[in-house]
């Protein structure tokens, strides 16, 4: 579904100050609601404000409070077993956010490392890694996911494996292009002339200079991971009961569409808003670190 199409990023340079500040401001205003949401899903369960999440067969499929027949006892309504949907929504959101973050990390980590190696050492290292990148990008990812899950069953580690396998190639490609651009910069030659070793140049100089780009990529990857997770969980192949994510809430909402559409409505809306904010933030960060876009 979400396939990142990024321009090859050129080497970052020191930012003209005003444009930099503007990008930072917009990044702040995008990051703020995300941070609030993340804190909310972790703190709300501790406050005791949420309704009791247990079953109540006298109050099944209650609509949300703002619709006719709803009550504030269950602000988002109840499911077919009378369980409170707000309580589910908050705990599912927690897992969704964790999966988004970890899913991005497991893709960015190896992707960045391989991209760095390919871009810096070139030669046969680059050739091997580039073929792997092409091969990965030549496989429709949902099929890779299906094949792995068919064999390994659904569990969180398998989900992370899928997210890593489907996400690393894009990160590797962008990191490789950026590394290729930076390694030609003269300060790298200067360091070599001073007797700096290759690992030092790669990890102490090139990597820090890529940090901004990597953070931006990682942010976009969080959005991708959340979308992939929601699709897999929706199909019953990602997060499965007793665990709950927004994606798996959509799965249980699918059967109830005709009777209780709100079960699927709110988690889906939450995913959309979350991913939209993450994508906007990622775009803002990428613009900030891409001098070509910034100079305009």
């Amino acid at each position: 579904m979400s396939q990142l199409e990024l321009d090859p990023v050129t080497a970052p340079v020191s930012p003209p100050r005003r444009a930099g500040r503007r990008a930072r401001t917009s990044a702040f205003w995008l990051a703020l609601p995300l941070a609030v949401a993340a804190v909310a899903v972790f703190v709300l369960p501790l406050t005791g404000l949420l309704p009791d999440g247990g079953q109540n067969l006298d109050a099944t499929r209650q609509p949300p409070a703002f619709l006719a027949g709803g009550s504030w006892a269950h602000p988002l309504g109840t499911d077919k077993l009378g369980q409170d949907l707000l309580t589910q929504f908050v705990s599912a959101g927690r897992l969704t956010i964790v999966i988004g973050l970890v899913g991005a990390l497991v893709a960015i980590g190896p992707g960045t490392l391989l991209g760095l190696l390919a871009g810096y050492f070139r030669g046969w290292v680059d050739r091997v890694i580039s073929i792997l990148i092409d091969a990965q990008l030549a496989l429709p990812f949902i099929l890779v996911a299906l094949a792995i899950i068919a064999n390994r069953g659904s569990s969180l580690p398998v989900l992370f494996l899928v997210l890593a396998l489907t996400g690393w190639a894009v990160c590797a490609r962008v990191t490789r292009a950026a590394t290729l651009a930076i390694r030609e910069r003269q300060f790298v030659v200067g360091l070599r002339a001073a007797g700096a070793s290759e690992p030092r140049i790669v990890f102490r100089h090139i990597l820090p200079n890529l940090a901004g780009t990597i953070v931006a990529l990682g942010t976009l990857q969080v959005g991708t991971a959340i979308l992939v997770e929601s699709a897999l969980s929706f199909l019953g192949l990602g997060v499965v009961p007793p665990m709950n994510s927004w994606g798996s809430m959509l799965a249980s909402g699918q059967d109830e569409l005709s009777q209780a559409w709100w079960i699927a409505f709110f988690p889906g809306l939450a995913i959309t808003v979350l991913v939209l904010l993450v994508n906007l933030l990622g775009d803002a960060l990428l613009t900030h670190h891409d001098p070509r876009k910034r100079r305009r």
């Binding site: 979308l227 929601s230 929706f234 569409l257 559409w261």
Partner: peptide, 29 residues
Amino acid sequence: ALLGQSVPVFWFGMMLVVLFAVKLGWLPA
């Protein structure tokens, strides 16, 4: 356009079903 890349498309489909098939009855689900 960015919204289109952020929405889980299958969820969008579910909501279309709710609106056009369940509520309005215009189209098959």
